[in-house]
Design a binder for these strands. Sequence first.
DNA 1: CCCAATTATTGTCCTAGACAAACATGAACA
DNA 2: TGTTCATGTTTGTCTAGGACAATAATTGGG
Lengths: 316, 316
Amino acid sequence: MNKISFTITSVEKETGLSKDILRMWERRYGFPSPGRDAAGNRLYPADQVERLRLIKRLIDQGHRPGRLMAMSPEALQELPVRHLQGATAHDAATDDAREIGDCLALIKDHDAAAFQQSLQQNLVRQGLGRFVMDTVAPLTRRVGEAWEDGRFAVFEEHLFTELTKRVLRQAIASLPTATSRPRILLTSVPDEPHVLGLLMVEALFALEGAQCVPLGPQMPLLDIAQGAAAHRADIVALSFSSAFPARRIPPALFQLRELLPADVALWAGGEGMQHVAPPDGVTRLLSLKDGLSALGLWTTGDSSAKKSPAQTGRAT
Amino acid sequence: MNKISFTITSVEKETGLSKDILRMWERRYGFPSPGRDAAGNRLYPADQVERLRLIKRLIDQGHRPGRLMAMSPEALQELPVRHLQGATAHDAATDDAREIGDCLALIKDHDAAAFQQSLQQNLVRQGLGRFVMDTVAPLTRRVGEAWEDGRFAVFEEHLFTELTKRVLRQAIASLPTATSRPRILLTSVPDEPHVLGLLMVEALFALEGAQCVPLGPQMPLLDIAQGAAAHRADIVALSFSSAFPARRIPPALFQLRELLPADVALWAGGEGMQHVAPPDGVTRLLSLKDGLSALGLWTTGDSSAKKSPAQTGRAT
DNA sequence: CCCAATTATTGTCCTAGACAAACATGAACA
DNA sequence: TGTTCATGTTTGTCTAGGACAATAATTGGG
């Protein structure tokens, strides 16, 4: 028999649960109950790591740790899927919805080539703008839900993300290079690795002729500020996925707002911004359309408009 | 005056130094010396965070923490650049070397469009294979060095990576879709976000007609194993950059080797593998060429060859 | 039946000590 | 003079349990 075991650092990486939490759960609930090596360090058997991964997912769905720890592994499996407040209100039953279901099935079958081809077809059929709004956005949402429900594994979500990124990037690259204002710096904060949202707005902004500087995800705040200065950016646009803990968003935005010069606008969008109030001086983009109208406002109203578009926190 | 300050979690994200290390340095060396909020939690002023970022870079260059902590901020700035064992032996003075220097300058000028165009030109001129070997690989190495020397900021490295990724992915997408063996799963372990190396081998492997499944970086080991099974992969290929701590590579490879079925080959390459001995059953790819010959061996020798190519650890 | 005050739960931070691995230093030797 | 080995120092990571504030659940009053 294989007695594969993980150190506490590995378990942190495999599950996304911090060392502090792992030790505290052990202390308070008696689970996990790792063995020890010669030096007294924890060694987690593989099955406990799997159980922790499941528990993590259930917690993200809204279950409470205390209950979950007391339950047997079998009982955990049978727990009903529990949705968060975010209504799963699909405007389904349209033609698009069927297409999207088909795409999901292709990922589930691990048929990378067919999936990519299907995306490409949709792109050509709909054009980049509608492709982003009507195909990529709903697909991304559905994949997120499927992951929360445990119907998608991590590697399936990664594959979907990777392939979709490729199609979007290719489409963006084929657009003419813009040289006009505004110059928009696109990135995400540390601990936010999801990047599809950024690519979607980049596509839409680029279509409108804005000059986008894609910095990739996970930029330290100090580097975002440095980058904004170096590129003489007019706008810094951030994306927060629904997986990003909501309570950490406002402090992060506030801090970045302080680090940026006052004449650089700060826009924040993505699923994670849905139920969060933006701090003063930060514009919240509730949807992709919102992003487009904010961009419209910027180009028409220019500098004066920067201080009071619809969703911006009261300017001081 | 702005008295921006960071919590210990923010500093961890901004600098890449763990909370444990930050507290231990404070205890042992008296630096950093954060203030405290009402609850007694640490609050780091912005200038200390900057100093910590500098110290982190110098440590990665081979300096020792104890010395650095005792030095004044000014003295730190003037510290000479110190290179690791990895010889900076450029086969410079060739035509290519000049081209590469030009590309670097474009990034330094933050001229994204010109950089991307320059890459694209090189791609067309050289063809994908030579483009990867003679342009992307040396460019990536030079950028890594520039970052270590502090000549490149984080946001500059990110921009370079992002733009290069786009060009490579576009090129890969234009290749015909392969359906033949081997099927190769490409990814990296948690804490290894660098992905250019993977894209380079993907391009080369795809040129040879192998079927590549790009899962993106930072896959938990359990998910790599799951993904390999689901995709019925013949080979799992990992990439380790020079930034990845060398001592953590062998245990990671060993553990993944245990998690994978014996008939799935495990290949590991990248700058980080240069000075690391691969565990039994893991093939080390010292260069991109090495990767190609390993692939050649696999396709000719097939299953029997899997157990004993040149660089593989002794099979049991 | 709904809203406010109270109580329970939970995550994060804290201090401080132990220890093993990595590194440097110097001694012994070719 | 250069090289290898042994010893001592430096450094990172783990351990333990306690404190507290923020969040969620529950109770009581209108």
